[in-house]
Amino acid sequence: MNNKELVLEAITAVFVNRDITAFDQYFSDNYIQHNPGIPNGTDVLKQFVPTLPENFNYEPGILTENGNIVMIHGRYENWNGKNMIAVDIFKVENGKITEHWDVMQEEVTAENSANGNAMFPIQ
């Protein structure tokens, strides 16, 4: 399995299937988090995922891989009551996700965009 496949499988397990055992399977014991609102490690995430609302949905879009860095452009539906578009960046070492960065913004529909373009999916 390449790094891109590993990250997609891990994120699908966590956010689509809500399988918190995926953290032990796919994430390093020394997982480093660069989102300033989330501490290092997976303990907080293991507690957070089961609290996601029933109507929460994650949809991965474009994935790209450059060596041990994988990026996913995706949509988080009903993330704290809003649809968010994000680029999640993961570092993979020795078959485990070791670090995470993200950039998120609230989704603006094409009809409400100054340019008429949708934010997701990338066409």
Rank of each mutant, 00 (worst) to 15 (best):
Y31W: 10
N94T: 05
A110T: 05
W101L: 09
G74N: 01
V70A: 01
V70M: 03
F56T: 00
A22K: 01
N17P: 04
P39R: 08
D102V: 02
N3F: 01
D102Q: 04
M119K: 08
E107P: 07
V14K: 11
I122R: 10
D43I: 12
E77K: 14
E107R: 07
T98V: 15
N94K: 15
E106I: 12
Y31G: 12
N80Y: 11
V44I: 07
V103H: 12
H73C: 01
M71A: 15
V7S: 11
N68H: 04
F120E: 04
N78K: 05
A114N: 11
N115F: 13
E107G: 08
P53N: 01
Y26W: 00
I69H: 00
I89N: 10
I20K: 07
M119H: 06
E9L: 09
N117K: 15
N78L: 08
D19F: 05
D102T: 02
E77S: 15
S113E: 07
N115W: 06
V108Y: 02
N78Q: 09
T21S: 15
Q33K: 10
R75G: 03
D88P: 07
P36G: 11
F48Q: 08
V16W: 00
A22P: 00
A13R: 10
D24Y: 04
N17I: 01
E59Q: 03
V108R: 05
P50Q: 04
N117D: 14
W101C: 13
V14P: 06
K96P: 13
A22M: 04
R18I: 12
N115Q: 10
V103Q: 12
N2G: 09
V14S: 09
Y76C: 04
G74K: 04
L52N: 04
N17V: 02
V49D: 07
N30F: 06
Q105R: 14
I20W: 05
V49L: 06
P121Q: 10
N115L: 09
I89S: 12
A22F: 02
E9W: 02
A114M: 13
I69V: 08
N3P: 01
K91Y: 06
N40A: 15
I122M: 14
I72V: 07
V44G: 01
I32M: 13
T109C: 01
Y58T: 00
V92F: 14
D29C: 03
V16H: 02
N40F: 12
M119F: 10
V49Y: 08
D43W: 03
N35I: 13
V92W: 12
N112R: 13
A13H: 07
K96V: 06
A22W: 02
L6S: 10
Q123E: 14
K91G: 11
Q33I: 14
Q47R: 12
P60A: 01
Q25N: 06
Y31N: 09
G81W: 11
K96D: 09
G81A: 06
I20E: 09
M84Y: 08
Q105N: 15
F27Q: 03
I97P: 09
I11M: 12
M1A: 13
H100C: 14
I11C: 08
Q105W: 06
I69R: 02
T42M: 07
N80T: 05
V70N: 00
N112D: 15
Q25C: 02
N3W: 03
I11D: 05
K91R: 15
H34N: 08
E9N: 13
V70C: 04
F56S: 00
T21H: 04
F15P: 09
V87P: 00
I32R: 15
N66V: 04
V44R: 02
